[in-house]
Design a protein around this nucleic acid. Structure first.
Lengths: 130, 130
DNA sequence: TACGCTGTATCGTAACAGAGGTACAGTTCT
DNA sequence: AGAACTGTACCTCTGTTACGATACAGCGTA
């Protein structure tokens, strides 16, 4: 599987995993009916406790993005809205990719880019220095 | 002051505050020698415990971005590298702003945009579906 | 000097994240 | 039926976050 967790960001691991699974569904990388790796398997790959994966899975089940069938596994259930949005999300990925590349070439660190991004998302309009 | 914390993201409040102060210094919104609000004042504004602000401040002092003078206050100390980068960061902000605006108009939610951003930052190159 | 501001330090408490382990229950396949 | 897989449910332990409150220490000014 194509997930990667970063223990240094301060964000809980199970949340990071949830976001990445969500995003995979939004881009179409995960499609309706796809089966996810087993809790123990994925936990071993990501080098985290099985509990952490289990928590992510069950939260996503509560959000109706996964269906957990005891004995058989975890399966993706993508709703219509998400499905109609995949194109937009994929386009967004490509645009973001281009911009991030440029910013990196300007010598910006990922951390700096992330801070600028979060700031922009938080304060839709803002004056830099009054 | 122009800070805002979000208790729902899972990211520690003191880290969020640190990032925002850092970013303010990177854009030039906070300049060398500027004085930050007092611990208690800021804590009250943000509706958090003074301990939380104190932790953010002292971590930033350890990172040499703040100078804490007992009795007088917290002051910004911006190094040369950061100073030479403000233009790039401000430009980045503007570019990100434009892109985010577009994506919102496409009907994407902030959460979806953030997931796409984080995914792109994490996997510089990636195939969407193999 | 005395007051009011600053940051510093330390309690105690609560909640949560995460690791690690164990046992149980349903499904699938042989 | 039985083995091997799945998720489910507990428990204990450790570390971190955050709150609340208290006391202390340095600085500046009236």
């Amino acid at each position: 599987m194509f997930f990667k967790l970063n223990p240094t960001t301060g964000q809980p691991l199970y949340l990071q995993l949830m976001q990445q699974i969500r995003h995979a569904a939004e881009t179409g990388a995960l499609q309706d009916g796809d089966q996810l790796p087993g809790i123990r398997t994925l936990a071993e790959e990501l080098v985290v406790s099985p509990n952490t994966v289990a928590k992510a899975y069950s939260e996503l089940e509560h959000d109706e993005l996964l269906e957990l069938r005891q004995g058989s596994g975890a399966f993706v259930t993508v709703k219509r809205r998400t499905r109609s949005l995949t194109d937009h999300v994929q386009l967004a990925r490509r645009r973001l990719r281009g911009l991030i590349e440029q910013l990196r070439e300007d010598g910006l660190l990922d951390e700096e880019i992330r801070r600028a991004f979060e700031a922009e998302l938080l304060h839709p309009a803002e004056v830099v220095r009054e």
